[in-house]
Amino acid sequence: MRYPDGGGLTAEQRKRREEVRMRAVDLFKEGGEVPCIARELRVSEKSVYQWRRTWRTGGREALCSIERDQ
C-alpha cells in the first residue's frame, strides 16, 4: 500500500530510497546474491527479495517511485 504523503518521508528521503532500489537493480544484473546486496545497501534481505521479484516481473520502471518531485 502506498501512502499519499510518501510514507511520511521527505522528498529527499524518497529520492534516496529510490536510488537504493536502482542500485539494487544494477547489482541484480551483475548477478549479485541477495545477502550480499542487502549488506552492501544496508537494507533487509526481505526488501531485496521483494525488489528482485518486482524487478523480474516489471523491470526497472516497476521499482521507480510513483510520486515525482516538482
Rank of each mutant, 00 (worst) to 15 (best):
R16H: 13
E12T: 14
R68K: 12
R2K: 10
M1G: 15
T57A: 15
R21N: 04
P4V: 09
V43W: 03
V25M: 04
R21W: 00
L41M: 05
M22N: 05
V43Y: 03
K15C: 06
F28D: 03
A24N: 03
E12I: 09
W51E: 01
R23I: 10
T57Q: 12
G7A: 01
E19K: 12
C64Y: 10
E33C: 01
L9R: 10
T57D: 15
R42S: 14
K15G: 09
V48H: 06
R53I: 14
V20D: 07
E12D: 12
P4L: 09
V20T: 13
E30Q: 15
R53F: 14
I37A: 05
L27R: 12
R53M: 10
Y49A: 08
R52S: 02
E18P: 06
G59E: 06
D69W: 09
E45W: 04
S65L: 10
R56Q: 11
Q70E: 14
G7C: 02
G7P: 03
R2M: 06
A62H: 02
V43N: 04
E19W: 02
V20F: 04
A38N: 02
Q70Y: 14
G59T: 08
G8R: 05
T57C: 06
R21T: 03
R56H: 08
G6K: 12
A24R: 06
G59R: 11
P4D: 06
R23S: 13
D26H: 08
M22T: 07
G8D: 03
V43K: 08
K46S: 14
E45H: 01
R23L: 13
E19Q: 13
R21Q: 01
A62R: 03
V48N: 09
K46A: 12
V20N: 08
A24K: 06
L27F: 05
W51D: 04
E33M: 13
E45A: 12
E40W: 02
K15S: 11
C36R: 13
V25S: 01
E45I: 09
R56N: 13
K15P: 00
A11V: 11
E18A: 01
E18K: 01
